[in-house]
Structure formats: structure tokens, C-alpha cells
Design a protein around this nucleic acid. Structure first.
Lengths: 342, 342
DNA sequence: CTTGTTGTTGCAATCGGTTGCAATATAAAA
DNA sequence: TTTTATATTGCAACCGATTGCAACAACAAG
């Protein structure tokens, strides 16, 4: 077990003061070039490593970003994390990641942990359950920037990073209408979350603009799990007259629903056209391939971290930047394409 | 921007010494119950939060675990991360996560970052490229435990957490043989990594035990990506006589290969039986469903963190525990099941 | 020869908890 | 009443780096 080398050891070795050593290692201009070189050499040679804690303690800055995510193990969220990690790593920031597992309780605990860890900034995607964000107030009060991504909430001190969910849903639904669907079901989740609320709106507007009636019973609120997709399929099979189109808020539910319908003999896309959301790998595996909305998760992760660091460096004022919207697009595949028209 | 409250503030408020406050907040036995209660109350009321850096600096312990992972965005790895996060969170440890992106260079940099961050322990799954592990030596020398998971390497000071890859591959290949396959192709990756080397061994042994010849040209070394699966399919279609079974080292490649073969008119499982590895969601989406090895990623993450913490608490000696092997199992589905026999 | 400027370096305090040891009070045993 | 054990509390040093301010040297300008 080697003993740790400190700047004091280096100072003693070279008969200098710790002050000068510290300055040299931080490339401070007021240190003689030769001295600096000598110090750096000895530091390397002695196997010195800076003590981040001493430094953090003194500087009151941690170079750490906290991330709160509903669940790590979804294709979408893991892409986001991958993008975040890449950017953070590039900028020499550490990432502390915690999951809320969709409960508000955990989210509060996580926020507390992040606060105690004194992260320089916080990136949050809200849990299904969360219905207020008081637990982020301590950050705001302390001037620690909080950025929401994907599952966001309006707050006049925080930036949000999103895609245009309303527009994406509008396009998806319109596409179904243009394919001749008259009775389009929308499978989605709790309306507390912006993403689902906005998509419902987009769905509604598209119906209106395509002269289709809106029917409350055609909106299925679920947890968007695989099982939820199966249940949705069973409900849809019960409906009379039977729907002829489905717009689901994620690919997992869309795919499992589709499979269940196929099992019941429904033909896709002819009896039923289906559109999902996210562009998960499964969407390119199911037959026919699933039409879906490409959600740029990796880019969202990158942008989130980049904006945060930008702000931390004082290069932008977070209060002015209210919302950053990323581009998404409808990818049309076999599950909804009835004709070569359009 | 609120000012931070310190134990000195609390001490002054209650006319006590910082020592007593510190002890009270750490639930030290040598503090009077009433005093303790009073201190805790005031702490809460004043909005005190402990300064982790001061504490870490003094205690030389960070309560942080470092994780190095090849890529975050794969279904398997994100499950592992989810399991790790859950356990770490339960035990009040933070997780710092970095990706090597399969390069040794990044892995070295990441290791260095972790070292500078003074993580209490390190969890590593090796990059494709890595061919020596000198970069973990500083941890070993300092007595910081390093645990490898999934992509491991033999080291007499480190525990490894794995599944029995050899056996899993053996079972997968034997299963194909029992289904009547005579010419089984193995799609896998660089043999530097234990997982792929062991699976190749299992594949070989199974061939031998089933009286099938081993043919070097039937082993396709790829990066196991979606594209690699397609290319593998094209190669397979060129082979004459044509193979009649495929054992792939992950589901992504297995699925894309399968789809490409189907596109060429090959019937699965009759012309070609296919087995994958990992039990990713796609394996239950493809038609016919993919036979695969269930790899308990989530559990592996849990076990890795639990073992590490166990060791950190001095409850186990890591040097004695060489390897922890988790149970995996072959899940037989339509892609390989030609008859109801077996 | 004095004053001013620039370049280098060090002193000493500070960040906020933690902990070995000593001090004091209180209770129990002799 | 004296001695011994036990319970509480505080002193002061320490963890390792950072930084405002002062000190000093070398040199140029006046």
C-alpha cells in the first residue's frame, strides 16, 4: 500500500513552498518556467496525484454533474446516458447517476444525495409519479443550475431540453389518417408528464385537422410496458366497431400490442396501422417494421451536458435559455404503410 | 444564494463544541441522548448539510464506487448498470460511471480519472481492445479493490464475476446438434475477451461430444453489431455446403443475421436453426422467437456492487474470493426448435 | 542614489469535518 | 469518605490544496 504523495512532499523534495508547488501544478503564470518544469517532473516521478477533496473543499466546486433518471435500462435512456457520459468525459466532469425508478420518493432521496454531494449542476428527467418539484428548490436557492430533459416541467429558473412532442404526435397521427385510418387509438401514459400530455394534444389536433372525431375511450392510459401493450391489444379487440389505427407513445408497447393483435389474426397494416415512438431497436425487428418517431436520445444527452457546462463556465445565462428543442422525425415503415402514395 | 450551514454554526447556536456536534450527527455512542436529539433537531431546522469533501478529506474514504463499462447503451449493459445503481443506492454509495467505448486508450484515461477521484473500489468490464491491465495496478498497489465483471481477466488480487460462458455455449451448441444440425456456424468476437474465448471453447467441446467436426472457417470473428450480423448472413449464404445452424454470441447479431437469411428465403428453424446470447428484448420480438441464453445482467450488477461493499466493510477477503459465477440458462424458443423432441 | 516596476516566492489563514487524548462530572463500589 | 469506573464533552491537531497579501530580488527609470 503506497503512501500518497502530497504537494508538501514535492515541496520538501525541491526545497520550495507548497504554495509554489500548487501554483506550478495549476499552471499559474506567476511561477518561473524552469521551476514549473522541475516541479512537474518531480510530481510525475514521485507519482503524485492531486487530492480532489482538499481541492474541492477549498474551491467549493466539485467538477461533478448529477443525473437523475427514471430507469437506466431502457434503450432510450441508456442512449441518453451514453451521450451524457461522452460529453462530460470530454470536459473532464464526473457523472453521478441515480435512478428514481419512477417513484417520487426515490427522486427526492436522490435529489438530496446530489445536494449533499454538492454537484455543480443537476440533470433531471422526472419520474411518472412526481407532482411537484420542491425537492429541487435547494439547488435553485443555492444557485446550482438544474436542467430538465425529456420529462420536463415548466420552471422559470430552469432550462428544459425536449423534442417537439406535440408536433411529432401530430405528424404520427396525421400519417395514420392519411393512410386511411378512421378510428385511431392512442396508447400512452399518465398525463402528469409533459411528454405524454403533449403527445395527446398532438394526437387530438391531428384528428381535428383530419376531420376525425375525438373519442375519450380511444385514449388508453397505461405504463407503456410490454404487458401494457398486450392488455391494450385485448381492449382494442373488444372495441366495436374495431379501431383501424394505433399510435403508441413508445415502441415497447407498440410492438407487444402489435404482436398480440397479429396473434388474434389481425393484419398489419391493412386491418390495423401502427405507429410507435422512440425508434428503439425492436422497431426494426418486428415484422412488418414499425413506423416510429426517431427520438435522438444520444444527442439529447450530449446537449444536456454541454448546455450545463456552458452555463457553469459562465458562457450563457440559463435563465434566458428557457427551452432547447431537438429535431425529431417520423420514420415511416411497413407497420403503417398501406400504399405507395404519399 | 443561501449560505451553507456548518457544524460550527450549529455548535455556536447550542453553545457546544463542534466535536460534539460532529459526533451527534454521526450517531456516536459517547454523546448524551438528549444532546444528540437537540443537535439533530437544530441541524434539520437550520438546513444543515454535511460537507462530504471535508469528511472525505479527513476520513480518506469517499463512499464512491467507480464503474468502467465498454458502452452504456446496450440492453445488457444498461441492465447491469441498473442493478449496480440500485445496490449502491441502498448502501449509500455513489456511482461514477464512465465508458471506454471499447478502446484501451479511453479505458486507461478512465482508470486514471477514477484513481484521482479516489473511488473506494472499482468495477470494470474490459474493452475489446484491452490487452494488459497495468492501468489498474495503481489501485492494487494502494489496496483499492478492483472487481471485474462480464469481460474479466485473471488476476490474483481481483475477484471476477461471470457466468459460465463455456457451459452456456456448450448447452447452446449441443441443443443445436440435438435438433439435427450438422454444420453449425459460430458468430462471435475477438478472442482476447474471456467471454468470447470461453464460448468458442464450449462450442468446440459440444461439437466434439456430438461427433461433429470442427471447422475453423465456421467461426466468424466480428464485432457483433447489427451490420456484422448481416455480413455474417451473406458469408453463410456463400458457404457450400450451406450450414444448418448458427450460434451467435449476442442477440443483436443473431437477429440481424436471421432477418437477412429470411430475406434470402431461408426458413428458420427448418433450413437454419439459430441461437443467440443475452436474452435481449429483441429476442422475443423476432419471428420465430430467438432461442437464447438468459444472461442475468441486473443480478450481475447487484452482485458486483454487493461484493465490493462487503469487501470494503471488511466482511470478506477479496483475495480469497477468486470468482463468482452466476447461473445462466438456455431459453429454447422457435428459432431453433424443429421438433417437440427433447 | 532613490524610486518604481516586474517577476518570483513564501507566510499563514482557510475550507469543514474528524479523532486521539485529556478533562470533568457523576455514579457505583469499597 | 475514598477509590474506581463510566458517561460526556472539549481541545487541538490534522486531512491537502488554495489564495490574499507581503516580501524580496533584479533591473530600469529618474
Amino acid at each position: 500500500m503506497d503512501k500518497d504523495i502530497t504537494i508538501y512532499d514535492i515541496a520538501r523534495e525541491l526545497d520550495l513552498s507548497p504554495t509554489t508547488v500548487s501554483r506550478a501544478l495549476n499552471d499559474h503564470p506567476a511561477v518561473n518556467k524552469n521551476t514549473k518544469q522541475k516541479i512537474c517532473d518531480v510530481a510525475v516521478q514521485m507519482g503524485y496525484r492531486s487530492n480532489i477533496f482538499a481541492s474541492n473543499l477549498r474551491k467549493q466546486r466539485t467538477h461533478t454533474i448529477g443525473v437523475i433518471v427514471p430507469r437506466l435500462n431502457s434503450p432510450f435512456m441508456s442512449s441518453v446516458m451514453a451521450g451524457m457520459e461522452k460529453e462530460a468525459n470530454n470536459a473532464d466532469y464526473n457523472l453521478i447517476i441515480t435512478q428514481s425508478l419512477e417513484t417520487m420518493q426515490k427522486e427526492i432521496t436522490n435529489a438530496r444525495t446530489m445536494f449533499d454531494s454538492r454537484v455543480d449542476g443537476l440533470l433531471v428527467s422526472l419520474a411518472y409519479e412526481t407532482d411537484n418539484i420542491e425537492h429541487f428548490q435547494p439547488f435553485i436557492s443555492k444557485g446550482t443550475p438544474v436542467i430538465f430533459y425529456d420529462r420536463v416541467i415548466e420552471h422559470n429558473q430552469c432550462t428544459s431540453i425536449v423534442i417537439d412532442n406535440l408536433q411529432a404526435a401530430y405528424k404520427a397521427t396525421s400519417h395514420l389518417a392519411k393512410q386511411g385510418c378512421k378510428r385511431i387509438v392512442h396508447i400512452t401514459a399518465d398525463q402528469k408528464r409533459n411528454v405524454y400530455a403533449d403527445r395527446l394534444k398532438g394526437y387530438k389536433y391531428a384528428l381535428i385537422d383530419n376531420n376525425l372525431p375525438f373519442d375519450e375511450s380511444f385514449v388508453l392510459i397505461t405504463n407503456l410496458s410490454e404487458e401494457a401493450g398486450v392488455e391494450a391489444a385485448q381492449q382494442i379487440l373488444q372495441m366495436d366497431p374495431r379501431p383501424d389505427g394505433i399510435f403508441a407513445s413508445n415502441d415497447t408497447a407498440a410492438v407487444s400490442c402489435m404482436k398480440e393483435l397479429q396473434k388474434a389474426g389481425i393484419l398489419i397494416p391493412d386491418d390495423m396501422a401502427v405507429v410507435g415512438f422512440n425508434n428503439d431497436p425492436v422497431s426494426r425487428v418486428i415484422e412488418p417494421n414499425l413506423t416510429t418517431v426517431n427520438y435522438p436520445g444520444y444527442e439529447m444527452g450530449e446537449v444536456a451536458v454541454r448546455s450545463l457546462i456552458h452555463h457553469l463556465n459562465g458562457l450563457s445565462d440559463i435563465i434566458i435559455t428557457n427551452t432547447i428543442t431537438l429535431r425529431s422525425e417520423l420514420i415511416i415503415r411497413g407497420s403503417s404503410l398501406r400504399s405507395k402514395i404519399e
